[in-house]
Design a protein around this nucleic acid. Sequence first.
DNA 1: ATTAATTTTTAGACAAGTCTAAAAATTAAT
DNA 2: ATTAATTTTTAGACTTGTCTAAAAATTAAT
Lengths: 218, 218
Amino acid sequence: MFSQSEENYLKAIYHLEIDADKGISTNAIAKKLDTKASSVTDMVKKLSDKEVVVYKKYKGVKLTNLGKKTAASIVRKHRLWEVFLVEKLNFSWDEVHDVAEQLEHIKSPKLVDQIDAFLGFPIHDPHGDPIPDKEGNINTIDKSLLSTLTKNESGVCVGVNDSSSEFLQFLDKKGITLGKQITVLEKENFDDSLSILIEDRKLSISNKIANNLYIQKK
Amino acid sequence: MFSQSEENYLKAIYHLEIDADKGISTNAIAKKLDTKASSVTDMVKKLSDKEVVVYKKYKGVKLTNLGKKTAASIVRKHRLWEVFLVEKLNFSWDEVHDVAEQLEHIKSPKLVDQIDAFLGFPIHDPHGDPIPDKEGNINTIDKSLLSTLTKNESGVCVGVNDSSSEFLQFLDKKGITLGKQITVLEKENFDDSLSILIEDRKLSISNKIANNLYIQKK
DNA sequence: ATTAATTTTTAGACAAGTCTAAAAATTAAT
DNA sequence: ATTAATTTTTAGACTTGTCTAAAAATTAAT
Ligand SMILES: [Mn+2]
Ligand SMILES: [Mn+2]
Ligand SMILES: [Mn+2]
Ligand SMILES: [Mn+2]
């Protein structure tokens, strides 16, 4: 059906489309996939022939419905595998991404269904990202960046914006994990740093950190 | 390290070497991989450059120690994944091979170790084939083809020679599974068919079947 | 020991996916 | 409205892995 490379392009476009109204630019895709714009142009033509994107020269690309569904199924696999690695094989949340990048390309509908059931039909991956269902629908919760909360607002930590292993390991070191209760005690004006209460501990957090943590307000 | 294609060649040579003294012929590899002899010649040169086989024109190839270890690690992964699929994900033994063919190429030492532990360090795959350890050593048991047993000999069914889904499904239909006690009641001379006792049932079996079932005598 | 059949290798081609360098189109700046 | 900067596309090349057809080597048969 689709080659590994084609699947990676579809996934990249899928992720770029989340916060974008116009077509996705050649350069944006090239940057995301760490490849050259000329390679993207070539591939995008192929994907257009296969009717998973619509492409008009110089105008960027958009996924078709088929493209969206295909991309979502790859993201679904990626995130299910991440859950599997953490829940069943004792991987930590900063170790799973690279392996999931490989596992997401395994082609076996039964395997996906069985892993899903084996894990108890999880809704979120270890980084708080939603797992698309079979049809590609995702259950979006309304989460806010911690940096957008004001003094005395509070909520539960439900996701990360940056899931690089450096950032995740930093969070581990600070004891910040998904599911924990967070309250903003103070917000400094000159550097936008925060003083927060996480569970029972008081913690100082830079704006860069706060910009990469998602909170579900309550 | 090695491409998917290179790994498949190594595995094919590994399996062909099991019952072979001379070098493995180009044609044998081509047949096993369902490819052309000319393609094999090309690849074998590449593998020789990478020092996983020794190759002399017209003389066939042999795995080096590095080649053997590499091939064994792929077989190890293949068989561990097969166990996982059967034991944890409710696959039947005739469904696992094609998926394992994909999964065996996933590169993550930690993943292999963890799957191994998760499964309780299995020694055999669902077809009775031994799982190489980390160093590539395999624990060979002395098994005999059912067709070589004589009247009144008995033992335990421990493996299959043919693991095509057709054959495996046939065995399912007849109620022949690994671990069952088998005794030869009668051996017909004119067609080498067998009358056997499996657990408590009496069964008639053609020579072709008996030629593809392994028994551990006792 | 020649000849014939088979196996293996070489030569040349092709598809997929990528790259560099140059041309063309678009967008931003004066 | 031109000119300049940026983005995108094209043209041509390269790598990996494959194929067909032809040549060379080996093995089998007379
Ligand atoms: Mn990931
Ligand atoms: Mn994730
Ligand atoms: Mn198998
Ligand atoms: Mn097997």
